[in-house]
Each structure stands twice: as structure tokens, then as C-alpha cells.
Nucleic acid binder design. Structure first.
Lengths: 186, 186
DNA sequence: CCTTTCCAACCATCTAGTTGGTTTAAACGA
DNA sequence: TCGTTTAAACCAACTAGATGGTTGGAAAGG
């Protein structure tokens, strides 16, 4: 059997994603990650340097994927809210990973900050706002609206007599309507 | 010096709040909590049973305080959003504690679920909505809007030339306006 | 033969929880 | 009233693992 370091690295990233989504950085165990990836623990340190390095690599990779799945459109923030909702509904681990990162790392990554600033500038131009601060407020509120469902604990989502899929669609419609209302009002 | 178990318990809860806010359940250390409380580690197990029991006690106590500081008013959701914003701005640790809990515990506590259901029913009546699900959506979206600022990493909040206090007031006004827009539209 | 990739055991430290006491002050009986 | 007993509160050391990271190799293939 030939060695394949790219395959090992990819399996480690996938296994690490699962472990970090579930337990965060402090709660994750490198032994479990290695076992799930069917790789040796030492490979984690060879490829990523440390447990924290692995976490940062996973986060960067997954945020990049999310950006592809929910492309940003400053001229259609309600539409963006809807597609962001869809992307997060399709991969529920993503919001958890982001939340762990917010809690366990000191600040957003430079990539996240830069991406946010680009979006804020685009929103400012699209909505003819006075400054980047107002754009930041609207942008972050729209994102908060879009992620409300993903952030809700299961106990608050429970709904008798309605399928999960139908319930989710109703919420999606509310998200888009709320985002639209916010954009028109501000 | 007389023993005072009530005082020891209170100091442990305060010290634990600081430690859990900063590092969550898995990342917190009972030795650090005991040291910060100037109490013996064994007292934690005597009063709370376990590290997890301590976490749950801290969460219950702090959510109770928040409910007092931001009283719920179904007839004035924009006003509620504003006062929730104020309460969280005054004690930034609270949103972090809630986030750790969402990630590290399986579901919302029974108290949180019951409190949410009461609020949803009140919103349904106040806004003449067809069902509790629509009320849940509006309620959770309003709360998401109110907590946007507290959930933002420092790197996204940065604003040159504006004091933090002024920046926060501007955002607060946007929160209330957004909540109002959402309530009127849905 | 050499480099890359991988392995299993190891290490030094950390950790939640336990234990066998000591200290404090109230209760009690002579 | 005072000495002893008792219960509550507290202490420091301990235990039995767990853990991130390292090391001295072996395996694979160019």
C-alpha cells in the first residue's frame, strides 16, 4: 500500500471537523480524532503543528466552503439571508463550529474580519448608507436573523403535528420576510 | 473565625461564573474556581455534587437575574429588544455563558424551555398570530436581533474615531428599529 | 541508499473527584 | 458553669486515570 499524505491530511480534517463541532477545542481529544481518521496521532503534529493549529485549519477550510455555498449579494440581502439559512440547515455543524471558535479563540480570524469588511463596504454602497458602521449593523443583524434557527436549541424548535421539514420552511419564509423588513426600514 | 457555608457557596458561584464565562465547562478547572473563591475544592463537591452540577447552578442563577433585568413585554417587543440589549451590554459574560451552555449541554434547560413557551404564548396573543410557531419565530428573531452586538467578535466591532459607548448607542437604536420593522412586517 | 510517511510506545504534566483527617462552635450533661 | 461531645464546615494530600505532545524507530517507494 502506497503512502498518501494528502489523503491522510484530508481524513484528519474531516475527523477533526466532527470532533470539534461536537466538543469544541478544549473538549476535543486528539486521540479520538486520530482514531476516527484511521491515522497516527503523530501525523496531526506533523501536518498541523498542534491541536490548535488543527482547529484553525478546520475552521478556515469550512468557512471557505460556506462562502461558496451561500454567495453574498449586497443587492439582495433577504435573498442572501435565505441562502445562508439553507446552507446552514444543510450542514448544522457549521454554526456550532463558528460558535466554538467565537468562544475559544480571542477574536475572529483575519480572514473573517477581512471578509466582513468587504461585505460591509458592499452593503454600504448598495443601500446608500452614510458609513461602514451602519452597514455593519444591518449586515450583522441580517446574518443574526438568518442564523436564528441554527442557533436554537432543539427544545425550543419542537413543534407537535408539523414535520421538521415543513417547520423549517415556514421559518425560512419568516427569515426572508424579516430581513426584507429590516433592509427597508433602515 | 466562624464557618459560613452560605458565604462559601456564594463565593464559589461567583468564581465559577467567571471561570465558566471565560473557558466553558470543558475548559474550566475546579482547582482555579476553588482558588478564586478562596475555598477548598472539596466544597464544590459538597455543595454542587460535580463540576457539571456547579455549571448548571451558575447558569440557573444567572438566567434568573437576566429575567429580572430585562423584563419581558409582549406588547412592546422593540422595547424588550432594547432592554435586553442593555442588560447584555452591562454584563457581557452572560451571553457567553448562554453560548457555552448551548454548545456543551444537550438542550436548553427545562426552565429555559418553559420560559420560552410562556413568552411565545404571550407574543401570540399580543400580535394576534395564528399559532405558537409563528410567535416562536418572531420572538427568537427579535432576541437574535437584540443579541447581535453581544455575539459579535471584537474584530468586527472595531470602529475608528468613535467611542465605544457612542458606537454601542448607535447599534442599540438600530436594534430597536429592526425589531420594530420585524414586528410590523410579520 | 535515501527521503517521505507512518507507527507504537513513551513522557511529563494535568485533572476531576475522593479521603482521612482538623477546626469551629453549638449542644449537652454533670 | 465548665468540660466533653457532636455535627457542620473546612483542609491538604491523594488517586487513578487522562492528555497533548514527543521519540526512536519501521515501512514504502523513488
Amino acid at each position: 500500500m502506497a503512502y498518501d499524505s494528502a489523503a491522510t491530511r484530508a481524513r484528519l480534517l474531516d475527523a477533526a471537523y466532527g470532533e470539534f463541532v461536537e466538543r469544541g477545542l478544549a473538549g476535543a481529544r486528539v486521540d479520538r480524532i486520530a482514531a476516527a481518521a484511521q491515522a497516527n496521532k503523530q501525523a496531526i503534529y506533523a501536518y498541523f503543528g498542534s491541536k490548535e493549529g488543527l482547529f484553525d485549519a478546520v475552521l478556515a477550510a469550512r468557512l471557505s466552503v460556506l462562502a461558496d455555498e451561500a454567495p453574498f449579494d449586497p443587492d439582495d440581502l433577504p435573498g442572501y439571508a435565505g441562502s445562508l439559512f439553507d446552507a446552514l440547515a444543510a450542514t448544522p455543524g457549521l454554526i456550532r463550529l463558528t460558535q466554538w471558535s467565537r468562544l475559544e479563540r480571542a477574536d475572529a480570524t483575519p480572514g473573517e474580519i477581512e471578509s466582513h469588511q468587504e461585505k460591509a463596504r458592499a452593503v454600504r454602497e448598495a443601500l446608500k448608507l452614510p458609513d461602514d458602521l451602519a452597514a455593519t449593523d444591518i449586515l450583522e443583524i441580517v446574518i443574526a436573523i438568518a442564523t436564528t434557527w441554527s442557533n436554537m436549541p432543539p427544545g425550543l424548535k419542537a413543534a407537535r403535528g408539523v414535520s421538521a421539514s415543513a417547520r423549517q420552511q415556514v421559518h425560512r419564509a419568516t427569515v426572508v420576510a424579516a430581513a426584507k423588513a429590516v433592509c427597508q426600514a433602515l
